[in-house]
């Protein structure tokens, strides 16, 4: 049998202890071992950005990391943002501005944008486009995503 390694990972504030194979991808671990299905896998080679999560607060691709590398680290996934009843302001702007169609890439965009807006609460259009340049969306042509980010930035900075 394959050798298993014990890991302890904090995901969305909850501590999980699991035994995993060395080769298990973090994306598969989150999805299939922990049942956090909001993280989507679009390319398995780190280009499309659909599987983006926060790793110790930084947006990274969970398909390029092994679960064992997450040992002792803190992870946030899309499930940590809002709920259908109580959306995160960025999620609210995404629906207000029609920034999603099939929705498959959306969690990756959200997780890329959350730290971006924390770092840069009043981004220009060019900065927004740069920020999402590592996430592919086949449906929207990005126009309404950019609009949504502007909208969210405005609303979030007013709140502060």
């Amino acid at each position: 049998m394959k050798k298993l390694f014990p890991i302890t990972v904090t995901v969305n504030g909850k501590v999980y202890e699991r035994q995993v194979e060395a080769r298990l991808l973090l994306s598969d671990f989150l999805r299939h071992d922990l049942g956090l299905l909001g993280t989507h896998v679009g390319c398995e080679h780190g280009i499309c950005g659909a599987c983006t999560i926060l790793f110790d607060g930084e947006a990274v691709r969970s398909c390029l990391i092994f679960a064992v590398q997450a040992n002792g680290h803190e992870i946030r996934t899309v499930e940590s943002l809002g709920t259908p009843e109580n959306l995160h302001p960025l999620q609210q702007s995404f629906t207000d501005k029609h920034a999603l169609q099939c929705g498959f890439c959306t969690p990756g965009f959200l997780m890329t944008l959350v730290p971006f807006l924390e770092e840069n609460p009043t981004p220009t259009e060019d900065e927004i486009r740069e920020a999402i340049d590592g996430n592919i969306c086949r449906c929207t042509g990005y126009e309404k995503i950019v609009e949504a980010v502007h909208d969210a930035a405005e609303k979030m900075s007013q709140k502060k």
């Binding site: 299905l37 909001g38 989507h40 709920t83 629906t95 929705g103 959306t106």
Partner: peptide
């Protein structure tokens, strides 16, 4: 009209085939 399907998609609650 804003889309009725968005909330499930935005929160990671929508189920796709691999889910």
């Amino acid at each position: 009209i804003k889309r009725l399907e968005d909330k499930q998609l935005l929160t990671g609650n929508a189920k796709y085939i691999d889910d």
